[in-house]
Design a protein around this nucleic acid. Structure first.
Lengths: 180, 180
DNA sequence: CAAATATGTCAATATGACTGACGTAAATTC
DNA sequence: GAATTTACGTCAGTCATATTGACATATTTG
């Protein structure tokens, strides 16, 4: 008797059974995401930064004036984890903090020109790969891929992400709009 | 006047400019992959294992008889990194090693029934999310998504991955077929 | 003023990755 | 048959990222 294949499933079992297509997508996701982040990793390494710095820089760039609490919710990490990364970005002159206008306990976060410079390199590299990939996927694929990735996100998180994606212009005054 | 950007182009410039769609996909990829791996992470935590164990277990399950060298190439990590994870899986009774038939220096890797049991839980959770996502993306989306993810993979790696995906049945005798 | 909130920080720990060096057994080559 | 190469393992040290728990400080709010 041969070793049961792929998922170990004897095939034809529960309705819950993973389809071979789904299993293939699991592997593709692994390799695709690894190479996708690899683009950025190579650039970040020049600066002595890592993926964590990238994520923080990304969201501060995209949503200027973000508060620390917002970042914690978006990234879903602890403040201790964020602290070191954020401190290094500030010390490196890529990010500046300033007390909130109405609430001076808050640290509103903004990227500096140097931070924008790095972000541009990073987004260029990653967007190039994405454009190439969507280009190769045929027209109209873009919408399907966006729907797929959105559906992959945890429903609760999905709402927050939709808010983020749909309101990029409001960045200058997203005072607490992020999570009511 | 806005701050001049990193690699030069202040918008409307180079053809290299990242499109807003690409930038959105960057964020969606981040959240989608995070929640996708979160499914598995929760299960693995029960066993005291991590993502690294998952990846190793996954590929041994999918390609029984895999050699250590194959795993290193697939995962693109060092043997020292693999060592601890693999040892823990063997000690935990999820994976067994046996000397190769023709070359007794090789350690052919196989999952035990216990390993299959864990893998089944993991693949069920992740495939469920994927099926739900592809389901929500409309019919025919599956192929578009597969093309997109494949195109996201580094061309060199892509060949290896295609080989892996296309030859799942040959798993029992992939003697060195993995990388000629 | 007291309590809640936003943020920061000290300390200890875990995971997963790395480099570099060295060891052993088995196969291959001369 | 000896020498080299290959497959794998292991010891030692380091780094990046994350965790939990406890405590500090400033500021806003009731």
């Amino acid at each position: 008797m041969t070793v049961p294949a792929a998922s170990g499933a004897p095939h034809g079992g529960a309705a819950d059974e993973p389809t071979p297509e789904a299993v293939q997508l699991i592997e593709l996701l692994f390799f695709a995401y690894r190479d996708f982040t690899g683009d950025a990793d190579a650039i970040l390494a020049e600066y002595g930064y890592g993926r964590a710095h990238h994520r923080v820089l990304h969201f501060i760039t995209r949503y200027p004036g973000l508060r620390v609490a917002d970042l914690l919710l978006i990234l879903n990490i602890t403040k201790q984890s964020l602290a070191r990364v954020l401190r290094q970005l500030v010390e490196g002159g890529l990010v500046v903090q300033s007390a909130g206008d109405t609430d001076r306990r808050e640290r509103r976060l903004h990227v500096t020109p140097a931070g924008r410079a790095l972000m541009r390199r990073l987004v260029n590299a990653q967007a190039r790969r994405i454009r190439r990939a969507t280009g190769l996927s045929g027209s109209g694929a873009d919408a399907a891929i966006r729907r797929f990735l959105t559906a992959m996100i945890e429903p609760e998180t999905r709402e927050m992400v939709s808010t983020l994606l749909d309101l990029p212009k409001l960045s200058k005054d997203l005072n607490g709009e992020l999570q009511p």
